[in-house]
């Protein structure tokens, strides 16, 4: 039934304690609604995981509307796509595009000229199984909607990250997605990532807070990402924002990656005062901390 929430929210962490990283973990990143930041999330979590030394492959399953390559700045390097693999025009390994900076990071691009029917659930499952042997993490970028594209993307995954924003329509769609994920046996756990959080609007009671969304969806939380104009520039440059040390959103994504690997990282305090006095105070408290 849609309403009952799975009781084991911490499968993500348990797996790691057992040290089963030899066989990769397949995580689908999904949302239902479009434009909430699935692809951005995928690019950033993937990059952060790879930076931490994991072997990561990202699969773009948004056939016909691919964008993950753009966010990673890899659009000019794509030779073969997932459809070429499925239709046996190349080997799986040939189709993997290596990241510019990080050799641990690969992309299996979607075909831009085909639609969602070009790949079946079974084929995607097989690809995931194959990639599990060589990678620690397989991140599947899911298209918007709940049709075949979603079914395909979910087919090979055993974990899910549901991306939403504190907006009514996004939360409603996330609820629908959670219902669908619960009906899937293969999905062992799912977690919620709340994107584009705007502390000022929440403070003035004009926007739902993170707590509101978590309570309404009653799903375990894996990340809170603040709204950040840096995302726009980072997309334009084809460089995920986690590479920007100064960015708050980048830091938040880094923390998500750490939580995925089982680290217990507290959520960022987004309502931090950024005034001059606060900075001075922070500076001094930092000095005090070092003296200890």
């Amino acid at each position: 039934m849609q309403t009952c929430i799975k009781p084991e929210p911490s499968v993500l962490d348990e797996k790691d304690k057992k040290g089963e990283t030899m066989s990769g973990r397949v995580i689908v990143i999904t949302s239902g609604k479009g434009g909430v930041g699935k692809t951005t999330t995928n690019a950033n979590i993937g990059t952060a995981l790879a930076k931490a030394g994991n072997k990561v492959v990202m699969i773009d399953t948004d056939l016909g509307l691919r964008n993950l390559d753009l966010l990673l700045g890899l659009e000019n390097r794509i030779v073969y796509t997932i459809v070429d693999v499925v239709e046996e025009r190349c080997k799986l390994k040939q189709a993997l595009v290596k990241d510019k900076k990080n050799p641990n990071l690969c992309l299996l691009a979607a075909a831009q000229t085909r639609d969602k029917t070009a790949v079946t659930e079974e084929q995607l499952k097989n690809i995931c199984e194959e990639l599990k042997k060589d990678f620690d993490f397989i991140l599947v970028d899911c298209p918007a909607g709940i049709e075949q594209g979603f079914q395909n993307a979910v087919a090979g995954a055993s974990e899910a990250i549901v991306v939403t924003t504190p907006e009514m329509s996004a939360v409603r769609d996330a609820d629908r997605i959670i219902g669908l994920l619960e009906s899937k046996e293969e999905i062992k756990s799912y977690k919620l990532l709340i994107n584009r959080v705007r502390p000022n609007l929440i403070k003035s009671n004009d926007m739902m807070s993170v707590e509101d969304v978590v309570e309404i969806l009653s799903a375990p939380l894996i990340g809170i990402i603040p709204e950040d104009t840096g995302i726009i520039t980072s997309t334009n440059k084809g460089e995920p924002i986690v590479n920007d040390e100064k960015s708050l959103a980048g830091k938040a994504y880094q923390n998500v990656a750490k939580r995925i690997t089982g680290e217990d990282v507290p959520f960022l305090n987004l309502e931090e005062d950024t005034g001059v006095m606060a900075k001075v105070k922070k500076f001094f408290s930092g000095l005090m901390g070092k003296e200890k």
Binding site: Q2, T3, M168, V171, R172, D175, R176, G179, I202, N205, D206, M207, M208, S209, D212, I216
Partner: peptide, 20 residues
């Protein structure tokens, strides 16, 4: 009632209908 509360309440009602 502020915008946030309105959103929460509307959402709760609509999700109950969606779910049941």
């Amino acid at each position: 009632e502020n915008a946030k509360d309105i959103a929460c309440n509307r959402l709760r009602v609509v999700l109950m209908q969606d779910r049941t």
